[in-house]
Amino acid sequence: MSDTTVTKNDQQSRYEAHVDGELAGFTEFRREGDVVVMPHTEVFDAFGGKGVGSDLAQFALDDIASQDLPVRPDCAFIKGWLDNHPDHPVKVV
C-alpha cells in the first residue's frame, strides 16, 4: 500500500501530492483579491487512477475552506470534484 501525503507549497503556489516520497502531482492556485483561483491540476502518468487527484482536490479545498475563502475552479478536474462532492463546505464563485 502506498503512502500519499499532500502539502501546500506556498513558494510555488501549489498543493503537492507525494506517494512514498515521490512527487506524484500538484494542483496550482493563486489569489485574486479574496478569491482563490485554481487553474490547473496535474497527476503524473505513473500515479494516474490511484486517487492522487482526489487527494489533492480534497486537501486543497479543505485548506481553502478552513481559511473561509471562496474558490474559483477554473481547472476542469477541480470543478468535477466539486460537482461530485456538493456537500463540501468551500464556497464556489
Rank of each mutant, 00 (worst) to 15 (best):
S13T: 10
Q67P: 04
A60I: 12
V19H: 01
P39D: 09
K79V: 00
N9R: 07
D34M: 10
P39M: 12
F59C: 13
D55I: 01
V37E: 09
D20H: 11
K91T: 15
G49K: 12
D63L: 04
D55A: 15
G33D: 14
V6R: 03
A60F: 03
L82F: 05
L56F: 02
G33S: 09
D20T: 14
D62G: 09
V71Q: 03
G49T: 14
A65F: 13
L69M: 13
K91R: 14
S66H: 08
Q12E: 15
Q12Y: 07
K8V: 11
L23N: 08
E16Q: 05
W81K: 01
K79S: 14
S13N: 14
A17F: 08
P39L: 08
D87W: 01
V6D: 08
N84E: 14
G21V: 05
N84R: 15
R72V: 06
D74P: 00
G80E: 04
N84T: 06
T41Q: 10
S2R: 09
W81T: 06
V92M: 08
E32L: 10
K8Q: 12
R31V: 03
V90T: 06
D20V: 10
S13D: 07
S54H: 09
D87L: 02
D20G: 08
A65N: 06
H40Y: 13
S66W: 10
G80A: 15
L69S: 02
R72T: 05
V35S: 06
P39E: 10
L23Y: 09
V52R: 03
V19L: 02
H85S: 12
G48R: 12
T4V: 15
F29T: 09
